[in-house]
Design a protein around this nucleic acid. Structure first.
Length: 811
RNA sequence: GGACGGUUGGCUCAGUGGUAGAGCGCUUCGUUCACAUCGAAGAGGUCGCAGGUUCAAUCCCUGCACCGUCCACCA
């Protein structure tokens, strides 16, 4: 056996697959179910941040599996929707206007199939203990069917409606969006001060960052308390460059201090415009087309893009003396998360799920979830509080789940698909009826929009449970035990899943959520391709084994971001070497020892009692941490116990007994303890280091323990009779003595093997009695010739030991 | 403007109402007998700042500063 752990650990990945170690058993009870995040299939490579969060969930899965639970741990692939479309467009440099929908969708399917394979291989390599037979992909028939079922049920329950109203629109992707699709982007621009003329020939100034919307102006608003404009209320103003008049109205909401205190309301520049338009029943002057160009209502600006129009209108305003001044400002824009294009508002019929009317209920639902860590709940609450739109679920795109809907081409009646026919594509399939029940027309038009990707993703717990399918698991795994996910999609994936579960099952989708942070680059910055700071796990894995990279992921506390530092991977590698060498040593002393033929009828040697008691503490603490999803703290407990108590002290203390030629009871006690404690250490490390622990287990323990894999062995439980606080305290005192002796040798520049002629310990008789239990081990370990106990009043210039003992060391 | 997280030794981070911890780095010492990918010892911190509560605050409370993130401000 080598002194370095074997290089071919990855063979265990194949072993786990072949032996179906992670198989979920349909008929077995005590289930622990995990709603794994299905990654977007929209990049060639996953980065080290993905490894971090997925591996963290895997620690938890492995823990519960070892605890004896029947773990439901699936993987999904989110391969529909805009992210995939954009990936394919980029890769093939596609002009959407020149490719048929059919060809484009085929290309998307081809790419997602290819990348899903890469992902699967990668997750297996990383050691995720997934049952791959539970996989799903969001564009696949099962997911489409469940999404459409969800749609039909919500429609029938009047939670989904189709209506025409102002919507959030991305002029670049040319689709409606929902609030969750938006992010903020800081931008510098100009606040333009524009002169408006009034009915009486007077003038006043309006400040705007969007002068191109002047032709869309429908009213001016002032604060009723604003003395400057009091006289204007109820009168009319003339829109510059246009020859029409708009009313001047009053609203408390107008901030007197912003700009000039005179607010221009357009169709529509922001959500405030929409509110005012609704509330005051203002006219509509929509000047922006779906592609972001201006229409004929804008007059001479027709056909220009928004930016072109902005430039041109400023020139025209200036020429005509309407532009008073420009002020440079930075402001924050709402942009589409996927393409970073500033969004517009326009009017078009869309499908909505009504959520604004149940905000209170959704807050309550959020409160019922166990949040790990707790502070992440605030992000959910903030999001619900700030909801301003119902959830727009229709997208004017190609690649996604179709709506199971046709319209009567005569009267517009909505025709739904029958559940038994799902999944349907109305552009390919015929409606379930031949004549419109309302007007008897026999002509129908398919809905051509596709669903928002979150419409499907929000159903992952129900997809996992095969909701309303033949072999439904809904009674078994739902509500699920755990949703592990990143904090950035609390407002989308988590939120929408809560919504859907509430509507469909009136329950929570899961009991616990574990929120992970991000993997950051070595400087603590978010990894992104454009910054060139993305770290790819493949590169790391050329140098280090998987377990070492997994070790890095344990370094993040729950919910915290984690920098990628090779140093930490290196530390993982060192831990592996240490574990291997501890095994190498133990194996040497255990190879002729058979635990199964072992007779327990004796009392364990004190040092052995001590390490057993320490082990119980470690089991207790690490189990508690795991149950609170604090995998990082659990690892620390285990590692400290292993490295410090077990390797640095215990192994050294028992060496002389192990090397002894006499096969006596004190040697047997050491062997027994070594076997048990080492096996427990292996089990405790197994969630973190699945490969190396499996290697060691298979090399030695399997034939004795008779369980197929370390990952199917039981998680250590505390054995109360092994927990012995008294012996633990005395043992800890012995460790302090050892440290004092080591220090004394070190100060004299002696080797640790240097002989101590005499060690005198000054203490009470009572203490001497306790300590003397360890005297032999202490002597042998530290090469002490004689140990003497003396009472305290005999002290002459002794050394103080940490816990109050006094000693004297003579060389 | 609102919210959340952070501020602890040179670096990266734990942690606790009562003598401050780890890993790395640094200094010194130590290899026949699991491991030099190791072991031992040491140096190094008024725990961001200012108040308050307490017998006692790095920890609890208030305010402030700085860093990170999210949301709101597009008139």
């Amino acid at each position: 056996m080598e002194k370095q752990y074997p290089k071919n650990l990855e063979k265990w990945g194949r072993f786990w697959e072949k032996e179906k170690i992670y198989k979920f058993k349909r008929d077995k009870k005590s289930i622990y179910s995990i709603d794994t995040p299905p990654p977007y299939v929209s990049a060639e490579h996953l980065h080290v941040g993905h490894v971090m969060s997925y591996v963290q969930a895997d620690f938890i899965a492995r823990f519960w599996r070892q605890k004896g639970f029947n773990v439901f741990y699936p993987m999904g692939f989110d391969d529909n929707g805009l992210p995939t479309e954009r990936f394919v467009e980029k890769k093939y440099n596609i002009d959407k206007s020149k490719i048929s929908k059919k060809n484009f969708v085929e290309l998307c399917l081809k790419e997602t199939r290819r990348i899903s394979k890469i992902y699967k291989k990668f997750w297996q390599k990383i050691g995720l203990s997934i049952d791959w037979s539970l996989s799903y992909n969001t564009i696949g028939p099962l997911c489409q069917k469940i999404s459409q079922k969800s749609f039909i049920e919500l429609f029938k329950n009047k939670k989904i409606i189709r209506r025409e109203e102002p919507i959030i629109w991305c002029p670049k992707c040319q689709t409606a969006l929902s609030q969750a699709d938006l992010i903020d982007k800081k931008e510098s621009g100009y606040l333009n001060f524009i002169k408006f003329l009034f009915w009486n020939g007077k003038e006043a100034i309006v400040a705007t960052t969007r002068p191109e919307l002047i032709p869309a102006c429908i009213a001016l608003f002032v604060n009723p308390l604003d003395k400057r404009y009091k006289a204007f209320i109820g009168k009319k103003a003339i829109v510059p460059l246009g020859n029409y008049k708009v009313p001047i109205l009053a609203s408390q909401k107008v901030d007197q201090k912003f700009g000039t205190g005179l607010m221009m309301v357009c169709t529509w520049g922001d959500i405030e415009d929409i509110y005012k338009w609704k509330q005051y029943k203002l006219k509509t002057r929509l000047i922006i087309n779906k592609d972001g160009s201006l229409n004929e209502l804008s007059g001479v600006y027709k056909g220009l893009s928004i930016m072109e129009a902005r430039k041109k209108i400023l020139i025209d305003l200036e020429k005509n003396g309407f532009l008073k001044k420009k002020e440079k400002i930075t402001h924050v824009l709402n942009v589409h998360e996927r393409c970073k294009t500033p969004i517009e508002f326009l009017k078009a019929p869309q499908w909505f799920i009504k959520i604004l009317d149940i905000k209170k209920t959704l807050k309550k639902q959020g409160k019922k979830i166990n949040w790990y860590p707790k502070f992440m709940k605030v992000k959910y609450d903030n999001w619900v509080d700030n909801l301003k739109w119902d959830w727009c679920i229709s997208r004017q795109r190609f690649y996604g789940t179709p709506f199971p809907v046709w319209y009567c081409s005569n009267c517009g009646k909505i025709i739904l698909a029958k559940e038994k026919d799902l999944p349907v594509d109305p552009t390919q399939n015929k409606p379930p009826i031949s004549r419109c029940p309302k007007c008897k027309s026999n002509k129908f038009l398919p809905e051509t929009d596709v669903m928002d990707t979150w419409m499907t993703s929000s159903l992952t717990p129900l997809i996992n449970a095969r909701w309303k399918e033949k072999k439904s698991l809904i009674q078994k795994i739902y509500p699920m035990n755990l949703r592990p996910q990143g904090f950035e999609i609390i407002r989308s994936w988590l939120f929408y899943t809560v919504v859907k579960s509430f509507f469909h099952t009136k329950t929570l989708p899961w009991k616990n959520v574990m929120i992970s942070g991000w993997g950051l680059d070595w400087e603590g910055k978010k990894m992104s391709k454009s910054l060139g700071n993305v770290i790819y796990p493949e590169e790391v894995l050329k140098k280090y084994p998987v377990d070492a990279l997994r070790y890095w992921a344990t370094k993040a506390n729950l919910g915290k971001n984690l920098r990628y530092q090779e140093k930490e991977v290196e530390n993982g590698h060192r831990l592996m070497t240490k574990l291997w060498n501890a095994f190498y040593f133990s194996f040497f002393h255990l190879k002729n020892f058979n635990i199964n033929n072992f007779n327990y009828n004796f009392k364990l040697y004190p040092t052995d009692q001590w390490i057993f008691s320490k082990l119980q503490e470690t089991i207790k603490k690490s189990t508690n941490y795991f149950e609170k999803y604090e995998y990082g703290k659990a690892r620390r407990e285990i590692e400290d116990f292993f490295w410090k108590d077990f390797c640095n002290n215990y192994l050294e203390l028992i060496k002389y007994r192990l090397y002894s030629k006499r096969e006596d009871i004190i040697k047997k006690s050491a062997q027994f303890t070594l076997y048990k404690v080492f096996l427990n250490i292996l089990k405790l490390f197994a969630p973190f280091l699945p490969y190396l622990t499996e290697e060691i287990y298979q090399l030695y323990f399997r034939k004795l323990e008779k369980v197929k894999s370390i990952h199917l062995t039981s998680w250590p439980v505390i054995e109360k009779d092994l927990l012995n606080k008294k012996i633990e305290l005395t043992g800890d005192r012995i460790i302090n003595l050892i440290n004092a002796i080591r220090k004394s040798k070190s100060e004299r520049n002696y080797s640790l093997k240097e002989e101590v002629k005499r060690l005198i310990i000054y203490c009470s008789n009572d203490m001497a009695k306790k300590l003397s239990l360890f005297v032999n081990d202490l002597k042998e370990m530290n090469n002490i010739n004689v140990i003497e106990f003396k009472t305290k009043d005999e002290i002459k210039n002794g050394i103080s030991v940490r816990d109050g003992l006094k000693i004297k060391i003579q060389f």
